[in-house]
Computed example of a mutant assay.
Amino acid sequence: MTRCLVIGGNGFVGSYVVDELVATGHEVTVFDRFSGGERRYDATPAREISGDFLNVGQVEQAVAGQDVIFHLLSTTNPASAEADPLLDVRTNVTSSIELFRLAAAARIEHLYFVSTGGAIYGEQAQDVVDENAMPLPISPYAIGKLSIERYLAYFRRVQGLRSTVLRLSNPYGPRQSPTRKQGVIPIFLRQIALGEPVTVFGDGSMERDYIYVADAARMLVAPLGRQSPHDLYNVGSGRSFSINEIIDSIRRITGIDPAVRFMPAPPTFVQHIALSTERFRAAFGETTDLTDLDEGVRRTWQTMVEAR
């Protein structure tokens, strides 16, 4: 049994990682702020630590006695990082460096950092992007994630902190907040539930690699305790869907044909991204049982309907 600390374990993706770790027999400690007191995960972890990622002493206490760390906490989202890039640097980047320092000092066996695959590559010539592509981030959020990746590589080389970067595409599903400026599927579903028009930035042709969150969690946990030849992996579905295709899926699932309001796309939006997962599949096995888009939208919509 591996003692796993999940930084940001009460967040959207983090809560599913907690569930997956518990289901696969590991001892889990969740570190998060637990805003509002709500527990998002279903599993019962060994420990819950209510703490602030910006408080080095609290993070140090959480790290003590752990074998492995999953770092999923982000103090910003793409919109808030763009509104205040310095906030992203002062909180996400510097606090992650502190975490890596503490992990190295505590001789943590392995640290897994969940980065972004949806934004870090920027605009690429190829349709499906693999890990050999040079990152070309054009948003502060993605620039910050790449900075954290580079600092993690520094700690790996200089202080021997074993680590893996997992570049996650665009996860969606139940537990994702529909009121934040991140995650078009729950945002669209909420707008439809309220009888509002769906707001699309651009002409609807923008494409992203969407992956159902429970599938993403299984992939994020898969490298735990296994030897692998690389320290960087893409995690995604391996294909892209346009915003127009997302709306078509929502029409099929909800039976509602929403009005669509088109707005200019921000200059930091990437037009197309799909992640190659060949490296991941070669190291950890096939991922052919992924939830298809309509089924994932159906589960997300059903959760919203039940919560109303």
Results as ranks from 00 to 15, higher is better:
Arg180Thr: 15
Arg180Pro: 00
Arg180Ser: 13
Lys181Met: 11
Lys181His: 12
Lys181Phe: 08
Gly183Ile: 11
Val184His: 04
Val184Met: 14
Pro186Tyr: 06
Pro186Lys: 04
Phe188Gln: 02
Leu189Pro: 01
Leu189Phe: 02
Arg190Glu: 15
Arg190Tyr: 13
Ile192Lys: 01
Ala193His: 09
Ala193Ser: 12
Leu194Met: 12
Leu194His: 10
Leu194Gly: 12
Gly195Phe: 09
Gly195Ser: 09
Glu196Asp: 13
Pro197Tyr: 06
Pro197Asp: 05
Pro197Ile: 02
Val198Gln: 00
Val198Ser: 00
Val198Trp: 00
Val200Tyr: 00
Phe201Gln: 11
Phe201Trp: 12
Gly202Asn: 09
Asp203Ala: 07
Gly204Met: 02
Gly204Trp: 04
Ser205Val: 02
Ser205Met: 02
Met206Glu: 13
Met206Asn: 06
Arg208Ala: 03
Asp209Met: 08
Tyr210His: 14
Ile211Trp: 12
Ile211His: 08
Ile211Arg: 11
Ile211Lys: 12
Val213Glu: 00
Val213Cys: 05
Asp215Met: 10
Ala216Tyr: 03
Ala217Leu: 12
Ala217Met: 11
Ala217Glu: 07
Arg218Met: 11
Met219Ile: 06
Leu220Phe: 05
Val221Cys: 10
Val221Asp: 04
Ala222Tyr: 06
Ala222Asn: 04
Ala222Gly: 04
Pro223Ala: 07
Pro223Gln: 09
Leu224Asp: 09
Ser228Asp: 15
Pro229Glu: 15
Pro229Leu: 13
His230Gly: 10
Asp231His: 14
Leu232Met: 14
Leu232Thr: 15
